[in-house]
């Protein structure tokens, strides 16, 4: 791995432009004190992560997984009794994507830091004059591009088949689902990277990732349902419970978009409860930014 990416990682040692054989032009050295070098360093790390992931076939595996899943669900779901079309397909896809996409994202993210440490790559990076936070952010960005691309291509292939079947009517619902799924994937990748940053060993990170998956996918909603049933919570508290789970936000976003053409539907109810599409989108972005910010800050405490 080190060999594969070595040409991307030649960060100049003190940030000054030197006749160093062209390394400086890759890493960027315009700012000597690292402030403006940050984005370039992030870019360099991200590109490395991206290339590694594509070469190691993570990208293909994820794409194939999403495509197989979406195609299987859309083509073999049988002649069910309900109106056909994108809305119905998206409703089924959304229910099952909530299991699969977080699991794939966590599996792809849990070793991002701790895994690189175990193979020694992190030592090499940290030996360079790169702020550790840029390494975390760069790693996340590189993998995020791979994961988002896999989601887009995998579900996009299914979308083409669906277009052949249903035509263009209602296609925007599917695209909305696609965008929300990208958001869901990026959130759980961020959580995976955060866990990878705090875990001492790779197995710990894996365990934490599985716990996180179980919490967000299975336990949280069950507890929230129980709490809502047991206590007379005010409406804003129930809405807060929805926002406390990125999987719930995803579900609200996708299901809210369904039926928006006909009667007022779920979206209107959600908007009334303070959960309009913009609010949900902002919450999803926050779920991406906060874990990464936390990881970028916690990486300083890490001992190699």
């Amino acid at each position: 791995m080190t060999h594969d990416a070595s040409d991307e990682q030649r960060i100049p040692d003190d940030g000054r432009a030197q006749p160093d054989g062209g390394y400086a032009t890759v890493a960027g050295t315009a700012a000597p004190d690292g402030e403006r070098a940050g984005p370039r360093q992030v870019f360099a790390v991200a590109v490395t992560e991206y290339r590694l992931a594509v070469r190691s076939r993570w990208a293909l595996a994820l794409t194939a997984l999403f495509a197989a899943f979406a195609l299987g669900l859309t083509t073999f779901s049988g002649a069910s009794v309900s109106p056909e079309g994108f809305e119905r397909t998206v409703a089924s896809l959304a229910v099952l994507a909530v299991y699969l996409v977080p699991l794939a994202a966590l599996a792809f993210g849990y070793d991002a830091i701790v895994g690189n440490e175990e193979i020694g790559w992190l030592h090499a990076l940290f030996a360079l004059p790169v702020a550790r936070r840029w390494v975390v952010i760069g790693t996340y960005l590189g993998r995020a591009i791979v994961l988002a691309s896999a989601v887009v291509i995998g579900f996009g292939i299914a979308g083409v088949f669906l277009l052949r079947e249903f035509g263009f009517a209602g296609f925007e619902v599917y695209v909305g689902f696609l965008l929300s799924t990208i958001g869901l994937a990026l959130v759980f990748l961020a959580i995976g990277v955060l866990l990878s940053t705090v875990a001492a060993e790779k197995t710990h990170a894996l365990g934490l990732a599985l716990l996180a998956w179980a919490w967000f996918v299975l336990v949280h909603d069950l507890l929230a349902l129980g709490v809502t049933a047991a206590f007379p919570l005010p409406d804003w508290a129930v809405s807060l419970l929805v926002l406390a789970n990125p999987a719930g936000i995803f579900r609200a976003l996708v299901l809210g978009a369904l039926g928006a053409g006909g009667d007022a539907g779920f979206a209107a109810i959600l908007t009334e409860a303070g959960l309009s599409a913009p609010v949900l989108t902002v919450a999803l972005v926050a779920w991406i930014a906060l874990p990464i910010a936390l990881a970028a800050s916690l990486i300083r405490r890490r001992r190699l």
């Binding site: 229910v95 909530v98 299991y99 349902l225 809502t228 779920f266 959960l275």
Partner: peptide, 18 residues
């Protein structure tokens, strides 16, 4: 529950509820 508190449907659509 969902009849009384519609936004709880978000939880009710979850795998756990299934």
């Amino acid at each position: 529950l969902v009849h009384d508190r519609p936004q709880a449907a978000t939880f009710a659509e979850s795998p756990a509820f299934d």
